[in-house]
Simulated assay, not measured.
Amino acid sequence: MHNKHPVDAATAAASVAPATRPTFARRQLLAAAVTLPWLGTLGTAARAQEGALRIAQSTALTGPLGDLGSAMHQGAKAAFAGINAKGGVHGRPIELVTLDDAYEVPKALANVEKFLAERDTFALFNCMGTPMIDAMLPKVNESGIPFFAPFTGAQLSRVQGARNVFNIRASYADEAEKLVQHLSTIGITRIGIVYQNNAFGKEVFTAARQSMERLKLPGAIAVTVESNASDAGSAAAKLAGGNLEAIVIGLAGKPTLEFVKAFRGLQRGVTLYALSVMGTQATVKALGPDATGMAISQVVPLPSNVVMPVVRDFQAAWKASGATAEPSHLALEGYINARVFAEALHRAGRNPTRAGFIDATWNLKKWDLGGFEINASTPERNASRFVELTLVGRDGRFIR
């Protein structure tokens, strides 16, 4: 039912040649050029749009996780708009073409097949969703196209020897380990784990259990929840009766909402710890007061933490882009992904090939993007290990 809107209006506007863009868009580009001083390292004098390097993205702009995909997409566009305003990379603008897959595997596969059939598609960028990426990978690996910054923390995208697949965000295992380490540090030992009865949930559970074993913590009480959340209430009841101090939540989407509401209805004195996939504004809003006090791991910095240079750059780009939504972790993640892509493209030289670009990504060693480090090692490891904990305040905002 989403086929009528394969490309959002903002994306379509971004792909129009400069000569046909409205005056407002010109003003946005000029504003970006003035407010983003870091761009001087990437751009030269502006050239005509005909030389644009085209990258493609399939993501959810509508559907159950449309808020996630849209936020990341807007963050990436803000970064690319600023880069293009200063002449692009080696004088060549970057054109991001995005198709909506509504978080549906068949649509995502159709989008990728379309992109792969178009010879001017240089790379796939920031495609979203574990099920979608799992389905895309055989085609991606067969083609050899750069598959840059897929949005998943699952190990399935971290494939040994797959040099064309470049993961940035910390993995679900990294996040789970960070949560358990924090609990150990503050002396909490009575821990429960609730996890989704699918590959995602099992990865979280396995990582949390292994971390607890390394830290010599007592075994956790563990329960599962089906993806339709039909047993969320019974899982909550079991953990509520377990005399626990904290619960690690390996859930996403509806199971998160149903479990947290059910558990809070039974017990309110236990701190709940969740992963970044739970920590969207839409989920926090849906939970209302039940979200207050939850601890959530994040794989990028707090988007209001202007002490970090990368956040200041992001905020300037966000403002220059004309975005009206409040900056979010997901928007910052999209922005960071775009900046890293541009850096690798810069290192690939004036006439980049796919092979040269892939080599350049793996040469990003201990590169500091204003407080956010990229350290490429091997395809089975993500290039960022950044994980920090945030709390949900009474107003629904994230605080450190």
Rank of each mutant, 00 (worst) to 15 (best):
H2C: 12
V7N: 07
A10K: 09
T11G: 15
A14N: 14
P18W: 07
T20Y: 15
F24W: 08
F24I: 03
L30V: 06
W38I: 06
A48I: 12
A85I: 10
G88M: 03
I94Y: 00
V97N: 06
V97C: 02
L99M: 11
L99C: 02
P106F: 09
L109C: 04
V112R: 03
P131R: 00
M132W: 00
P150V: 06
P150A: 08
T152W: 06
V159M: 09
Q160M: 04
V165Y: 05
I168M: 10
A173D: 05
V180D: 14
H182W: 12
T185A: 09
T189M: 02
I193P: 02
V194M: 01
F205S: 06
T206D: 10
R209Y: 08
Q210M: 12
L215S: 09
P218C: 10
A220T: 07
A222G: 13
S227N: 13
N228F: 04
A232V: 07
A237E: 15
K238N: 12
K238W: 03
N243I: 02
L251E: 01
L257W: 00
E258K: 06
T280A: 06
T280V: 13
Q281G: 13
L287H: 12
V299R: 02
V299H: 09
S304I: 12
V311C: 13
A316W: 02
W318L: 04
A331N: 06
L332H: 04
R339T: 08
N351T: 14
N363R: 12
K366C: 05
D368S: 11
A376F: 03
S384F: 11
L389W: 09
T390F: 11
V392A: 02
